[in-house]
């Protein structure tokens, strides 16, 4: 049984708080190296949950297309988004940014890629729930 969005949000918060507690302890002890490691862990945890939730949205979009517009099955992801949300430039812009970030995180690199999870997660959840199969 896959966890619901609500369960995933709770799980994310639990882990995020745990990592923040570790980070606070490192700062309190003035351990700069440990504090930086804690920071990196938080960013990676954010990325992992972002990928998890975006993949859910991707799956929902693909499922709707497969059921209701099979000729778009092999189309680019953004073309499917445009079909589901016609003339909604805000959704298109937002989803394109998610897709770019998903790809960028997937390719990795020795730099940080930061997400505001408290902003992005409810947006993804709202999009997911608005797609009726």
């Amino acid at each position: 049984m896959s966890p619901t969005f609500s369960e995933l949000k709770d799980l994310y918060s639990e882990l995020s708080d745990f990592l923040a507690t570790q980070h606070m302890a490192a700062v309190q002890s003035k351990e700069s190296g440990t504090a930086e490691i804690c920071n990196q862990k938080k960013i990676h945890n954010d990325q992992a949950y972002f990928l998890y939730l975006f993949t859910r949205l991707e799956g929902r979009i693909n499922e709707k297309v497969q059921k209701q517009k099979p000729e778009l099955k092999e189309a680019h992801f953004m073309e499917k988004v445009r079909w589901i949300f016609p003339q909604n430039s805000q959704v298109e812009t937002r989803t394109r940014k998610y897709l770019e970030k998903r790809n960028s995180i997937g390719h990795g690199g020795n730099f940080n890629q930061v997400i505001s999870m408290r902003v992005v997660v409810p947006q993804i959840e709202h999009l997911f729930n608005s797609i009726k199969l």
Binding site: D17, H23, V27, K42, V114
Partner: peptide, 29 residues
């Protein structure tokens, strides 16, 4: 220590910059 303001990122998906505020009761974003 009661609170720590940590700069996290500037080019942030969903915001124009993010700080985390660490406290003993969890982190504020």
């Amino acid at each position: 220590l009661i609170v720590s303001f940590q700069p996290i990122g500037l080019w942030v998906l969903g915001a124009n910059g993010r700080m985390d505020i660490l406290t003993h009761n969890g982190a504020y974003e």
